[in-house]
Simulated assay, not measured.
Amino acid sequence: MTAVGRWLTEAVPLGRIAAFRTLVYLFVAGDLVFFTPWVRTHANVPGELYRPLFVSRLLHLPTPTEWLITGIFWTLLVLALLAATGRAPRLLGWSVFALYLYWMIIGMSYGKVDHDRFGLLVALAVLPTVGRARHGDPTRTEAGGWALRVTQIAVVCTYFLAAWAKLRFGGPDWMTGSVLARAILRRGTDLADLIAQVPYLLIAAQFGIMAFELLSPVVFLLPARWRTAMVGFFYSFHAVTMATITISFAPHLVAMASFLALERVRPLVLLRRLARRVGGASATETSPPRTTTGPDRTVNPPGQAVVGGPPAGP
């Protein structure tokens, strides 16, 4: 196997795949309810406003109707929650990918296409190829390594291609223009208003964004510790973005968890330990108190030896 092949299939613990899979499918369910419920409103939009994406035209998908959108919503919600349990990973995984892709095609066929879902869609496409994986399983898998690596590449491509699009359509003027100023005027927060008052800070931020996106592939060249630190910087960048211009990039952040050692986070184990502690504390509280006749002497039931106190006489 070549060096590139070994890099693409670097083995990871199955527990990491199980944790990432649960995270991804739970997000899909949450996305339907909290992040993209507006897609359901397209059920009441006249069909002539539908402008299908290229993939929709290629697959000859029908114009969305109320019954179609409602059916996809409830079916996808149920299947995503089932897939999060890890059961039938291939059957449920492929089903969730197909339905979520269709959900996104419907959502993005009315004039606006978001690029923050590319990494998540890639993750949904490759996770079913891994097969079964249990939480906490240390067994290493090359198939799982490939699935995570492909997702990581999609995450980095989201940054790099965003910079390429800025230069392609905006040119170098993108960095010296008023892009962030317009964003703050449209959807800025109080924090953004404070930042905007600092002279040339927004221009410097635009140069910084361009440099960050163009250099994002460097994350693959770093040692593990520094790679984790750079991924932490990615997350902090989006935290600042959310705090200033209220753009969350939530699907992208979920896909970016493919860089993290998620097998170390075992919520089920933590819940079991918490339940044991709570159960143990409850048992202690409900047990009858012992009756004592003095500081060192306990009255025991008949037939049992006395605990504590002076030894019994002859």
Rank of each mutant, 00 (worst) to 15 (best):
V307A: 03
A257H: 12
T291D: 03
V33Y: 07
G208H: 07
F249M: 11
L185K: 15
V150I: 13
C157W: 05
A196K: 12
L194T: 04
A261E: 15
F97L: 07
A43W: 02
L81Q: 00
R134N: 13
D137S: 11
L274C: 05
W103N: 12
T241H: 07
L26M: 11
L124K: 11
G86N: 09
W38K: 06
L270Y: 07
N300C: 11
H252G: 06
G170D: 13
L215F: 00
R182H: 14
G86Q: 08
V150H: 02
I153V: 15
V231R: 11
D193S: 13
T141V: 00
L121D: 03
N44T: 10
I245A: 12
G119T: 02
F118M: 08
L180V: 10
R264C: 01
F169E: 11
T139E: 12
Q152S: 06
A305M: 05
L180M: 13
G303H: 09
I153K: 02
P314Q: 08
E10C: 09
V130Q: 10
I195A: 13
L14S: 03
V78F: 10
R277G: 10
F220C: 07
R21A: 12
P288K: 11
G145N: 06
L77S: 10
T70R: 14
G309F: 06
M1C: 04
L222D: 10
W7D: 09
W174E: 05
E66P: 00
G47D: 10
L260V: 14
R273Q: 12
M256D: 06
T291K: 09
T291N: 04
G188M: 06
L81P: 00
K112Q: 10
R57V: 09
C157G: 05
W67Y: 04
P37L: 10
P288A: 09
A18Q: 10
S56P: 01
A283D: 12
L76K: 08
G208M: 11
A305L: 08
Q206P: 08
E10S: 14
L49F: 13
T22F: 02
L99I: 06
E48K: 04
